[in-house]
Amino acid sequence: MHTAHRRPTARSSRHAAWAAGVALACAAVLGGCTTAPPPTKPAAHAAPASAADSLGIAFVRVPAGEFLMGSDESPATLAKAFPHADAKRLVDFKDEAPVHRVRLTHDIWMGATEVTVGQFREFLRLSGYVPESVRDGTGAYGFNPDYSPPNNQRADLFDGRDPRYSWDNPGFPQTDRHPVVNVTWNDAVAMARWLSEREGVVYRLPTEAEWEYAARAGSRTRFPAGDDPSVLLTTANTFDSETALRWPRWREQAGAGSDGFAFTAPVGSFKPNAFGLYDMIGNAWEWCSDWYDENYYAQSPAEDPKGPAEGTVRVRRGGSWHSWPLYARSAFRNWNTPSTRYVLVGFRLVREAAVAPRP
Rank of each mutant, 00 (worst) to 15 (best):
H2K: 04
A4Q: 02
R6V: 07
P8V: 03
R11K: 11
A20I: 05
C33F: 07
P38R: 09
P39A: 09
P39L: 11
T40Y: 00
P42C: 02
A58L: 11
F59Y: 15
V60W: 01
R61V: 11
S71W: 05
P75G: 03
D86A: 14
V91G: 15
F93A: 10
F93N: 01
P98H: 12
R103K: 12
H106T: 15
I108L: 15
E114Q: 13
V115F: 01
L126Y: 09
S133H: 04
G137T: 13
T138Q: 14
S148R: 09
N151D: 13
L157N: 02
Y165D: 05
D168Y: 08
Q174C: 09
V181W: 01
T184F: 08
W185P: 00
A188V: 00
V201H: 10
A209Q: 11
W211S: 06
E212W: 07
A215C: 15
A215R: 04
R216N: 08
T221P: 06
D228T: 12
L232G: 02
T243Y: 01
R249G: 11
A256N: 11
D259N: 10
P266M: 10
S269N: 07
N273P: 14
S289L: 07
D293A: 10
N295H: 13
Y297P: 00
A309H: 14
G311E: 12
R317K: 14
H322P: 00
H322G: 03
L326G: 05
L326I: 09
T340R: 04
R341Q: 10
G346T: 12
F347Y: 13
R348S: 11
A353P: 04
A353G: 12
V355D: 01
R358A: 15
P359M: 10
